[in-house]
Design a protein around this nucleic acid. Structure first.
Length: 572
DNA sequence: GCCGTTTTCGGCCCGACTGTTTTCAGTCG
C-alpha cells in the first residue's frame, strides 16, 4: 500500500491525541503535532524520500526518533507505538477531543473515572447526569457537552470561502451601524484567504463606552451566545458557523491583527524570533522588558524583529519567514494583474449566456481577452460540442471578433480526457483553436498509477495547452482523484503545458501547495473561473487568493500577459 | 520529542473566558 503524507499526518495526530490523554509531557505531544502538520504540508512525497534514502531529519521538527517512525510507517503501513497506545487506552478516545469543551484533561478524567471510551457512552452518561458529578465538571459543562454532541452529529463542516464571505459581509455591515465603532476587520484564516474557513474572527476598535459586545450578540442571525466578556465574545450563527469578536485600542490594533490573523504556526515562529531578540510579542504589542515599543500596525511589529511586512496569505510558516529575512518575499499577484479569463462556458454547452454577453461582461471587468471553452461531446449532459458544432462556433467567434471592440475572444475548448488518456475530439479540429484545455470529467476512481498515466497521455497531445481543474476535487463534496502531482507537473513542463487554478470556490483546484510546487518546478499557471454565467466571472478573486497562498507572482501566471505574449505562450 | 551564536541540558507562546472553585484549572485560539 502506498503511504501518502496525509497517512503519516493522521498517525502522528492520533499519537499526539492519545499521548495527551494519557497525560504525557506536553512538549512531547507538541513534537508529534508539529511533525504531523509539517508532513501534511510538505510538497514532496515522504515515502519517495524514504525510498531514495534521503535524510528526513533535514525536515524541520523531525529528529532521529520521528525519522525512524516515519520510515516504519512507510515500510509497514502502520506504527507499533500507535497500536500499543490504542491497546493501552482506546482507539475512539481521540474522537472525544473533537467535542468543543473537552480537552485532554477532561477526556482522561471521564475515561479513568467512568470508563467512557466513545461519543455514544459520553452522551448516555451526560443524559443521566453522571458526568456532572465528577470533580471539576458541573451541570453547565454537561449541558454544553450534550449540545456539542448534537451539533457534531448534525454536521461537521468548514465553510467554503465564498459562503464565509457572504456571512462575514453582512455581519460587518451590521456591526458598523453602531456609532462609535471604528475599524472592523475579519482576521483568521478568512484573511489568509484559505479555501475553507472554520470560524470568523472579527477585530474591532471603537470609542470608549461603545457597547459593541451587546450589539454583537444581538445580531439577528445569532443562534447561541457561547461567551460574552468585555473584550472578547463568541456566538454561533444559524448557519452553524462560530464568530468571535475582540476589541482593541488603536495602539494595539496592528499586533492584535497579526496575532488573530495567524496562522498559529506563523505566530509561534515570530514570537520565537522576538524572544531571541529579548522582546515579547503578544496581541497588545511588542514589549522590551515591560515597555511597549510597537503595536499600531502590523508593519511596525514586523519591523521590530527586522522583517518586512509579510502578506497574510503567506503566513503559514512554510518558508515565508526565511524568505522575508533574505528580502526574497514574492511580489504576489493581484486581481488587477489579470488581463483575461481563459475558461468560460456559454449557452453553446452548459453556460447560461451568449458568447457576446460573456465577452461584454468580461470587457466591463477590464479584460483584454477571454477564451470560450465549451465542453466536448463526451460530456453529453452538458451539451458538449461535436467537431461539427465546434467548427461552427469557431466561425461564429470569428464573426463576433470582427464586430467587437476592446476585447478579443480566443477560440478554445475544454475537451474531455477519455479513459485511455486520448482526447475526446480529433487533432484536426483542435489544431484550429487558440487554446485547448483538457479535463477529467469521469472515471474518477482509477488507481493513482492509472489516473496519472491517463493525464500524462493527455498532456502529451501536441495540441494540449492547459490541464483543467487538475485534481477534480470539490471542496466538502468530493475528494481529489488520486494522482502523482509531481509527475504531472514534470510532464507539463516537458510538453510546454500549463496547469489551471480553477477559481470556482467549490474547486480552487490546484490547491496552494501544488501551486507553489508548480512554480518551483517552473510550470506556469492559468487562473481561470470556469464561469457558466456572468456572475461566475467574479470568482476570479478566489483564485487570486489561492494563487497568492501558493506564492504566485504575476510572471508565474499566463493570463497576466498581453494578448500577443499569451498567444506566443500558447503556440507549441 | 526537538533543538542549539545560552549546544548535549533545559527550555519549548501566551492571554481571555467559563465554570467550578474558594483561588484556579481547563479550554481555546
Amino acid at each position: 500500500m502506498p503511504i501518502h503524507n496525509n497517512d503519516i499526518k493522521e498517525i502522528f495526530t492520533r499519537v499526539a491525541d492519545l499521548l495527551e490523554i494519557k497525560g504525557e509531557n506536553q512538549f512531547r505531544v507538541r513534537a508529534y503535532r508539529n511533525a504531523a502538520r509539517t508532513i501534511g504540508e510538505l510538497s514532496q512525497n515522504v515515502a519517495d524520500m524514504v525510498e531514495k534514502g534521503e535524510d528526513l531529519t533535514e525536515i524541520s521538527g523531525i529528529g532521529k526518533d520521528l525519522a525512524g517512525k516515519i520510515e516504519e510507517i512507510v515500510k509497514t503501513g502502520t506504527l507499533k507505538m500507535l497500536q500499543d497506545l490504542e491497546k493501552e487506552t482506546s482507539p475512539e478516545l481521540t474522537k472525544l477531543l473533537q467535542i468543543p469543551g473537552l480537552g485532554a484533561k477532561r477526556v482522561k478524567l471521564i475515561y479513568e473515572k467512568l470508563g467512557i471510551t466513545n461519543v455514544k457512552e459520553l452522551k448516555e452518561s451526560a443524559e443521566k447526569g453522571i458526568l456532572s458529578k465528577l470533580y471539576g465538571l458541573g451541570e453547565k459543562t454537561e449541558k454544553k457537552i450534550l449540545r456539542e454532541i448534537g451539533r457534531l452529529e448534525e454536521s461537521e463542516k468548514r465553510f467554503n470561502i465564498a459562503a464565509a464571505e457572504q456571512i462575514a459581509d453582512s455581519y460587518i455591515q451590521y456591526l458598523k451601524k453602531l456609532s462609535g465603532v471604528n475599524d472592523v476587520i475579519i482576521a483568521g484564516s478568512y484573511r489568509r484567504r484559505k479555501e475553507t474557513v472554520g470560524d470568523l474572527d472579527i477585530l474591532t476598535t471603537c470609542e470608549q463606552d461603545t457597547d459593541i459586545m451587546e450589539h454583537f450578540v444581538k445580531y439577528e442571525d445569532v443562534s447561541e451566545v457561547i461567551s460574552k466578556g468585555n473584550t472578547k465574545s463568541s456566538v454561533i450563527l444559524r448557519s452553524g458557523i462560530q464568530v468571535d469578536i475582540r476589541v482593541f485600542t488603536p495602539e494595539s490594533y496592528g499586533s492584535a491583527l497579526l496575532y488573530f490573523t495567524g496562522s498559529k504556526a506563523h505566530n509561534i515562529a515570530i514570537r520565537k524570533i522576538a524572544q531571541e531578540m529579548g522582546l515579547k510579542i503578544n496581541e497588545y504589542g511588542v514589549f522590551k522588558t515591560d515597555k511597549k515599543i510597537a503595536g499600531k500596525s502590523e508593519e511596525e511589529v514586523y519591523k521590530q524583529i527586522d522583517l518586512p511586512y509579510i502578506p497574510p496569505e503567506l503566513r503559514e510558516n512554510r518558508g515565508e519567514i526565511e524568505s522575508a529575512r533574505k528580502g526574497k518575499l514574492p511580489n504576489l499577484l493581484e486581481l488587477g494583474d489579470i488581463r483575461g479569463d481563459l475558461h468560460i462556458h456559454t449557452e453553446w454547452s452548459d453556460g447560461h449566456f451568449t458568447i457576446e454577453e460573456m465577452a461584454e461582461a468580461a470587457r466591463e471587468r477590464g479584460y483584454e481577452y477571454i477564451a470560450i471553452t465549451e465542453h466536448s461531446r463526451h460530456t453529453s449532459v452538458a451539451n458538449g460540442l461535436t467537431p461539427e458544432r465546434l467548427a461552427q462556433q469557431i466561425r461564429r467567434i470569428d464573426e463576433i471578433n470582427h464586430k467587437l471592440d476592446g476585447i478579443t475572444i480566443l477560440k478554445g475548448i475544454e475537451v474531455d480526457i477519455l479513459e485511455d488518456g486520448s482526447l475526446d475530439l480529433p487533432d484536426e479540429i483542435l489544431s484550429k483553436l487558440d487554446i485547448v484545455i483538457c479535463s477529467v470529467h469521469y472515471k474518477f476512481n482509477l488507481s493513482r498509477k492509472e489516473q496519472t498515466a491517463r493525464i500524462i497521455n493527455a498532456l502529451q497531445n501536441p495540441y494540449t495547452n492547459v490541464l483543467g481543474h487538475p485534481t477534480g476535487r470539490m471542496i466538502n463534496k468530493r475528494e481529489p482523484y488520486q494522482v502523482d502531482m509531481e509527475k504531472i507537473i514534470k510532464c507539463a513542463r516537458d510538453n510546454n503545458c500549463f496547469l489551471e487554478l480553477n477559481s470556482h470556490p467549490d474547486r480552487l483546484d490546484l490547491n496552494d501547495i501544488h501551486c507553489k510546487m508548480a512554480k518551483q518546478m517552473g510550470v506556469k499557471i492559468a487562473i481561470s473561473t470556469d464561469a457558466h454565467s456572468i456572475n461566475g466571472l467574479d470568482y476570479m478573486r478566489y483564485g487570486i487568493g489561492q494563487g497568492r497562498r501558493g506564492w504566485l507572482e504575476p510572471h508565474d501566471v499566463i493570463n497576466t500577459r498581453t494578448l500577443s505574449e499569451l498567444q506566443k505562450l500558447l503556440k507549441k
